[in-house]
Design a binder for these strands. Structure first.
Lengths: 203, 203, 203, 203
DNA sequence: GATGAATGAGACTTCATTCAT
DNA sequence: CATGAATGAAGTCTCATTCAT
């Protein structure tokens, strides 16, 4: 009988293979054959660990989201200022972005066909991915900041991800410290002023 | 012989059906049967107008991108200030880009399998979508603005699209004027200061 | 109103186009689109002259077989000897072989699917194509020739067609007088002796 | 894991089913569904053994051609005279070549659409099928025989195949010994005389 | 009569899933 | 537990035939 560790390994190998394949081709175009081959197991073995392609996909999302959130939270806890936050977000999203982004893209397209239980799990993942940025911003935004945190978080994450994405698509060697600097330059002023500045600016 | 207009209509009907289906399911999961049914034509008719599913997808992208760029350019030409630009971008991307964004998401996954000629066409689409924001920013950014326009454009577009996307995903009734206001509040300060401010801020 | 001649022309144009296409691709792979384009008419027009692809095919076979038989009979009537016969057959089959052969090949594969009435017409064509060689041989074979004429005809026709076919396939410039000479050299002796020679040879 | 023999069997079953279907209907009209049903396997199984219909067709040709050539060579090696050769050829082509001939007929129509690599393989098959008759004739033809062996081979093969074909088409019970006798009677004299006889005959 | 856009049955092929070994 | 051969539903695409113009 195989011991517990071997089973864990197999499970992890399959998830890693699935990540590679889903990331590269998207959910619909990914083939279980490819995942099996990449994982170095037989096709039937996949079904010993995951009931279906859809379950494999969702459990992969859950695993990666959890890891990502844990990492991000740990780093953001150390942040001393809004500038720190932006720097950390830019750096970590820069490192993790490509894989996660590609996975995330599959969600909106694929999930509508999933059974309800899986759809619910995906919904939870989405919520979880929002929170770290949101929590960090809450700590440092001016108390009277007029834009709600969830939407400010969307703005910040969008800015970072697109900038990283453009660099990657253009094939440029991505210099993360540059990305962080650009992000800080553009976003910091707008994130640092309270409502009275707004009023001032409007007038 | 059917008259010219009828043919044009059919062509447009199919593109609209394709837009709906590709947008909803992504390229790989979209079925030609669904597109045909949505367009109200027989399966074979699709192939009278587009040689293959891939060609239909790319020509849809081209058509929508062209429309989008034309509209955006026209509006941005009227902008009198950076605030105007951000407002226009937020409003139009909110109206037009949710769909296009979904289409765009399919690209990175699907296009690698396409024949080279189609890949090249997609590449051109990507370039075209970047330009309007870039051109508008060039007009209003301070002369000594330290972040290159292409990357500033990425930051702006990303902020807008994510914000719109979050609103849509959350199922909120999207109030575009709110979106525009939030965007202006967060981004405007950082886009308005020249290099000397940067130096000041750093110190 | 179009006059009779124009209708005849159209009919003939279509048959010629069909001959070219069926000859090139075989019955099953031939497309009505190609035949229409080759004939310079619209696809629907084909169906004004021939009820279906199968009918078009069979009527083409009938037309060409009739022409071929008429021509062959006329020439063979002039033959003064077995050598003449072989020379004439080699020359004419050499001229007509490629087209007819290709058409004939389609028959055995395609006809089983045809409706019974068309099958019967094809059967008649086959009989008709055999007869000229058979009739000519009957005139010149020794009275006591032991091999039945229909089978002798098969041997003669097979020898000629394969020889021409090999030349064509090898891409050689086919010299018909050479073909005729070879055929005569190989076949004439065996066709010229009566049964007593056979007995002699056997002993 | 299924044992090696079972896989071999399946492979052979499919080839036999393919032979039956391609032979009956020709390449273009043959349906993979029919081949699968005839072989007693599911449609998808065919594609585990052969990458496409075209590949299945070509590999069938290769297999049968190889068997045929091997058998023919073995028998012809034992021939003691030209009469033996003709008898052997008539008998074996009668037994083995009706099927192969039907396959061969598909080649000229279907192969032009094939990818270049498959075309090359078919070309090699054609060459291989020519050689046995040619080699045998070279041993027994008079040294000064004026017709080149490759063309003499074409004449002999054509005569045999047509005769067999006519018998089959007429639905006659084919008596192979009769066929052999007829062939020998017609062809032997012409194949036995050297060039001086030719000169004599011409005068 | 002539056209050719439209149709839809049916072809090839793929791939998630199963199950005997 | 692990395997991978087998399955068959479902996808893309073709093409003979029809019919409104």
């Amino acid at each position: 009988m195989k011991n517990e560790d071997t089973l864990q390994d197999r499970h992890r190998d399959i998830l890693e293979a699935a990540e590679l394949v889903f990331t590269t081709r998207g959910f619909a175009a990914a083939r279980m054959d490819d995942i099996a081959e990449t994982a170095g197991v037989a096709k039937g073995t996949l079904y010993l660990y995951f009931r279906s392609k859809q379950v494999l996909f969702v459990e992969l999302l859950e695993t990666r989201a959890e890891e990502y959130v844990t990492t991000l939270d740990a780093y953001l806890r150390e942040a001393k200022s809004l500038a720190d936050c932006l720097g950390i977000l830019a750096t970590l999203r820069g490192q993790l972005f490509v894989k996660n982004q590609r996975l995330a893209e599959s969600i909106s397209h694929s999930v509508p066909d999933f059974p309800r239980e899986l759809q619910w799990r995906v919904w939870n993942i989405r919520r979880a991915l929002q929170r770290p940025t949101e929590k960090a911003l809450e700590r440092f935004l001016p108390a009277d900041y007029p834009v709600p945190p969830s939407q400010t978080a969307a703005i910040v994450n969008g800015a970072i991800d697109y900038l990283v994405g453009v660099c990657v698509l253009d094939g440029e060697q991505m210099v993360l410290s540059e990305v962080a600097k650009d992000i800080q330059y553009v976003l910091l002023p707008g994130l640092s002023r309270g409502r009275q500045d707004w009023a001032a600016n409007e007038s």
